[in-house]
């Protein structure tokens, strides 16, 4: 009934969209468990993954969508739509719209973020930035100042080297601040 190209398009669409529907369907079951146990969805999903193969379920959901979409398209074509028009309409109708799953995931990530957040980490990051930037500027400016010939040369062009040294020092300080931030983030992740 459908061209080979169209069959591929349908399969591709199902591959993209079916996981969203499957996830939402699993949410119903997961929500019940979550309410009962008080655990987060990610923890429950991880537990569930140990006991069953999700790939098989996902494949089935994809196949179901391929057939469902094909039936719908055939119905539309019987009503006079072309193959392409029927595909566009079916695509629009079957595109996953619910924000429930996505917003739940976002909420979960926010909860996890604040759950693991330690105010001392943020304070340390700020202090590292400040310290490295001050040190960088000071050392850079000092090297530039001395390197250009000290006070005698400062007003007759030496100030440019002092300025360049300060700028380079600022950049190095910021870089070290970023490094310290990365180290703290990695440590917290463990």
């Amino acid at each position: 009934m459908f061209s080979h190209e169209m069959k591929e398009k349908i399969k591709q669409f199902a591959k993209e969209q079916a996981p969203y529907y499957l996830e939402e369907a699993e949410m119903t079951y997961m929500e019940k468990l979550r309410r009962r146990t008080g655990e987060t969805k990610s923890k429950l999903m991880a537990k569930l993954a140990k006991f069953k193969s999700r790939s098989e379920t996902a494949m089935e959901a994809e196949n179901d969508m391929v057939l469902y979409m094909s039936d719908y398209m055939k119905d539309l074509m019987e009503q006079g739509l072309s193959e392409q028009e029927a595909f566009e309409r079916a695509k629009e109708e079957l595109k996953f719209r619910s924000e429930t799953t996505k917003s739940a995931d976002l909420q979960e990530r926010i909860v996890a973020h604040y759950h693991h957040m330690d105010i001392a980490d943020y304070e340390a990051v700020g202090l590292f930035y400040g310290a490295f930037v001050f040190l960088g500027i000071s050392i850079g400016a000092l090297i530039g100042f001395i390197g250009s010939g000290g006070w005698e040369m400062f007003l007759s062009g030496g100030w440019i080297r002092t300025l360049i040294g300060a700028i380079i020092g600022f950049l190095i300080g910021t870089g070290l601040g970023l490094l310290s931030n990365a180290i703290i983030v990695l440590k917290r992740k463990k």
Binding site: F2, T28, Y29, L67, L94
Partner: peptide, 30 residues
């Protein structure tokens, strides 16, 4: 919406409320 029924069938299956029989189809998957 067409999507509503598809989503609902997945839920019914997930909640083990239906028995499923697979039969061959002309589109490939059963």
């Amino acid at each position: 919406a067409e999507a509503t029924v598809y989503a609902l069938l997945l839920r019914l299956e997930k909640n083990k409320l239906v028995h499923i029989t697979k039969k061959p189809s002309d589109m490939g998957p059963p």
